[in-house]
Design a protein around this nucleic acid. Structure first.
Length: 114
DNA sequence: CCCTGATTCGC
DNA sequence: GCGAATCAGG
């Protein structure tokens, strides 16, 4: 999984555009974890939780703790959450086309790459 | 229950 | 550096 220029561009664009890590992740075909991790590596983040909220668990480097069976969390890698509603031939631009411009260069980058 | 993002760990 | 696992909150 190599993060290409368009990948990063799309990621940054969508992220800055206000999209969520999950949406971008699904759009790129990754998990939101990868997106969030990548964003963190970039230095980009949308402060949702302060880094000094809590010191996590101590005295145990193993993140795979063994909680109660009732609190077990199976891996759910389902990638089919929000489905984009199919729009008609009618244009939908209630706002300016600033988004369009950004998206245009994005799709252009994708086209060039693809 | 679903979702969100942030951080840590193994490769 | 990447991705997954995990935690923490709304």
């Amino acid at each position: 999984m190599g993060w290409d220029a368009n990948d990063v561009a799309l990621l940054k664009q969508l992220w800055a555009d206000g999209h969520s890590a999950g949406q971008i992740a699904i759009r790129l075909g990754l998990s939101r974890n990868a997106v969030s991790a990548k964003l963190k590596r970039m230095g980009q983040r949308r402060g949702h939780k302060p880094p000094t909220a809590n010191p996590r668990i101590v005295s145990v480097p193993k993140r795979k703790v063994a909680p109660s069976a009732a609190c077990a969390r199976p891996s759910d890698k389902v990638v089919s959450r929000r489905k984009p509603a199919a729009t008609k031939s009618a244009p939908m631009e209630p706002k300016e086309f600033t988004k369009r411009q950004l998206y245009a260069m994005l799709v252009d980058a994708v086209k060039n790459t693809g």
